[in-house]
């Protein structure tokens, strides 16, 4: 029987990987009482069901997991079985502790990851926006987890680097799967309207094209082309459009200072705000407010 249960601090194998909380592979043949009570998850847990059927509660909602399903649990979510036990079957998972991860999507994995910081931000956003902890058809998962296990147990030359790469690979594949699954069977106007909502909700955020494209599961080239064809604007020009429209509202309907309006609507300075506003409307923001 092939079992593995490595925990940080306990397992020698994980000594070099403080950011891996645990790496677990279980085959359950006897039900043990209180083996899986509902409690807050530690880190980001990514796992797979390989045999059996599991009834769990994740973030307060009931799910039935079948072989082939992937589960993805965040540090602020609770997970467990309502009966408190792991049912008969087989499953595996890895839990990672990022340096920073919160429900708003702020995410830093730590120095081990070679994913650039700007992309970690995008990954954080996509993960945080995902509302579905149980994913089907995440084909890349089983193989990557198996290779991580193999590398950890064999400790061949270069295994630390390779494990870090495999973890990056796992996260990237997962996030691509999430953003694609989200938009499967949707036409671009529907996809864009969801993105638009995120932009509106976080207008002050310094959005990049990479981030926007990542959120809808497209490469930047294809994304830019599609946005241009659908909206008539490049992604960044569309964003300016949104920002100025919001700024006009704030100028007309509030007494907020121009600096506050500039920052609230995502301009990096009040000068940048003024010049963009004037270029488009012919008025400076101050003059525009006076005409009202």
């Amino acid at each position: 029987m092939n079992q593995l249960n490595l925990h940080e601090g306990k397992a020698e194998y994980l000594r070099d990987f403080p950011y891996i909380i645990e790496l677990v592979k279980l085959k359950i043949q006897n039900i043990q009482l209180n083996s899986f009570t509902v409690k807050t998850n530690e880190g980001i847990r990514i796992g797979l069901i390989t045999e059996g059927k599991f009834d769990w509660v994740i973030a307060g909602q009931g799910y039935t997991l079948f072989p082939g399903d992937t589960f993805l649990i965040y540090p602020w979510q609770e997970i467990g079985s309502p009966k408190g036990v792991l049912d008969i079957g087989a499953l595996c998972w890895v839990s990672l502790s990022p340096e920073l991860f919160d429900p708003s999507g702020l995410l830093q994995f730590g120095a081990w990851s070679s994913i650039p910081e700007s992309e970690q931000r995008v990954i954080g956003k996509i993960l945080a926006m995902n509302k579905n902890p149980v994913l089907s058809r995440f084909g890349a998962g089983p193989q990557i987890l198996q290779r991580i296990e193999h590398e950890i147990l064999q400790q061949e030359i270069g295994y630390r680097t390779r494990i870090n790469h495999l973890l990056d690979e796992l996260l990237i594949s997962l996030v691509r799967h999430l953003s694609k699954a989200e938009n499967f069977r949707r036409d671009f106007p529907q996809i864009f309207s969801k993105l638009e909502q995120s932009l509106r909700e976080n207008l002050a955020h310094p959005w990049t094209v990479e981030e926007m494209a990542g959120l809808v599961g497209l490469g930047t080239t294809a994304f830019t082309e599609k946005v241009k064809a659908f909206t008539g604007f490049s992604p960044l020009h569309y964003l300016i459009n949104l920002r100025i429209a919001e700024a006009i509202k704030l100028l007309r309907q509030t007494k907020m200072s121009l600096t506050d309006i500039a920052f609230d609507t995502g301009f990096y300075s009040s000068q940048h705000f003024s010049s963009t506003f004037k270029k488009l409307t012919g008025y400076t923001p101050r003059a525009y407010r006076k005409t009202q």
Binding site: S193, E196, T231, G232, N241, L242, I244, A245, E246
Partner: peptide, 27 residues
């Protein structure tokens, strides 16, 4: 052309932001 969204704050509702329609037109 330039597009703008329709909002559905409730099932029967369909709304548009007049400022965005104006700014898009101007742009």
């Amino acid at each position: 052309k330039g597009s703008y969204p329709t909002f559905h704050p409730q099932a029967d509702y369909s709304e548009q932001d007049p400022e965005q329609v104006f700014i898009t037109t101007l742009y």
